[in-house]
Design a protein around this nucleic acid. Structure first.
Lengths: 252, 252
DNA sequence: CGTTCGATTGAGGAAGATCAATTAATGTGG
DNA sequence: CCACATTAATTGATCTTCCTCAATCGAACG
């Protein structure tokens, strides 16, 4: 299955025994996918970097569940502003924003080779009459998304640029870890401009933040370009965030 | 019914014929409440300013639908940070964040006298077997919330402080208008610190932003205190946002 | 009537945006 | 395969915005 050969980071066994929490998440994802597969036999679609699943403004019909690869969600405003509002990994659902008004309001673009399962919303509802657990999956995924979006908002609202970048990388690495992918070697498939946009800073500030984190050995650039990076210690990233928040815990 | 006597703004007929769009929203809300009432006969609860429906960390059991009044949602981070992640008005649902893990992860506090309907999540699911429209309501509300949260993120990420404040006031006014409440006289039931927190700025910056908007006649302070304010022209607020975004559309 | 809390306003400083130049990576046509 | 064009990333210099610190004012409350 594609899941084991595609992803944003090199998809081999995790470098260290995954925590039980990460294990739980991975099992949850596997169970969810199995359930969907058994009861809906969803149509598959292989995507390549740059492919879009749907565009803002299109009529909503399908939800997508990501089996491999990674996606970005870009939301356009009427006035031309664009915002990277989210990143999606294996097990994540896409398209919820279309349910309310029958129109997607962002664009989902693959950043990587991957595979998505297409779920007709009406078919899902119909099938969930027989199999209520399907509904549980949907609600859980939507609920999680709401919670995750709030964390993004908090990050942007309460952290300075460097910490925001650290928090972002931490989340990314954790998302990979939860899925059993290695986190010591990840590839950001976004430009500095896109990362900056997502984090509410300019591309220059994003670049500088990465440079500073590298200078402090919290990350390291692998490969030739500066898109592959290495996170020696994921926990050190959140420690950095904490340190920035805590004003002066020393001497007192 | 309480709906007609309580709200964040003086609850009389709208000052001008509501747009058909606002009408549609109002009808949608009324229909949704009727449906919930008929099929679930939800228990009611009257709340007063400061009451909480649930706290972050509590076990999830109930969803709430707001019939009157307004609420704020505050999300606490492990490290002590707090973020006002949303504001809720009549017709809005509260508690979605609890579905995924069975635990609420924010605190819902009334900012006003109001009435909420309590919906047992399991009862809702059970009832929706007979009445699929109930499920539609739930999904629509969750989907809308996801879309709205993204708009918040975009506002924080792309707008300078003044425009962010203008956008915030515009959204607030529009939320009231959609519900048939007057928008020319609204009461912000939050301190400057809370508003600033929600918008990712300090309380001083929030205060200055309000002062500047007042200086430009986009808002006016009513009453004696500075919590009641008047929005002579809601559209002018979004025009202001546009003006800030557009670099220099003149002469060229 | 004083106390307290919230709001406003000012002055100074710091974080981040903008402008600009340089370098590195990628792609293209010869 | 190389020269060249193009796009992304980095870094520096400057300027703006916003934060921080502080003082003052106003309203609400006991």
């Amino acid at each position: 299955m594609l899941a084991s050969t595609m992803s944003c980071s090199t998809p081999v066994a995790p470098p260290r025994p995954a925590s039980s929490e990460a294990d739980a998440t991975r099992r949850q994802i596997a169970d969810a996918l199995r359930l969907l597969n058994e009861h809906l036999g969803p149509q598959r679609r292989v995507v390549h970097a740059g492919d879009t699943l749907y565009q803002a403004g299109e009529r909503f019909e399908l939800l997508y569940v990501l089996n491999a690869g990674c996606f970005k969600l870009v939301s356009p405003a009427a006035d031309g502003r664009e915002q990277v509002v989210g990143l999606k990994f294996r097990g994540d659902w896409l398209g919820f924003d279309g349910i309310a008004d029958g129109i997607y309001d962002c664009t989902a673009t693959a950043m990587d080779t991957g595979e998505v399962w297409m779920i007709r919303y009406d078919a899902l509802l119909a099938a969930s009459a027989q199999q209520p657990a399907l509904l549980g999956l949907l609600h859980q995924a939507m609920s999680r998304q709401i919670a995750r979006d709030r964390e993004s908002l908090m990050s942007v609202c309460t952290l300075p640029a460097d910490a925001r970048m650290a928090d972002f990388l931490h989340d990314w690495a954790e998302s990979l870890a939860e899925r059993g992918l290695r986190t010591d070697q990840i590839t950001l498939r976004m430009t500095r401009a896109e990362i900056g946009n997502h984090l509410g800073m300019t591309l220059e500030t994003a670049s500088r933040a990465l440079s500073r984190l590298a200078r402090e050995k919290l990350i390291a650039f692998a490969g030739k370009g500066r898109r592959d990076l290495q996170i020696p210690d994921v926990a050190a990233l959140s420690a950095f965030v904490q340190r920035v928040i805590a004003p002066a815990p020393l001497l007192q």
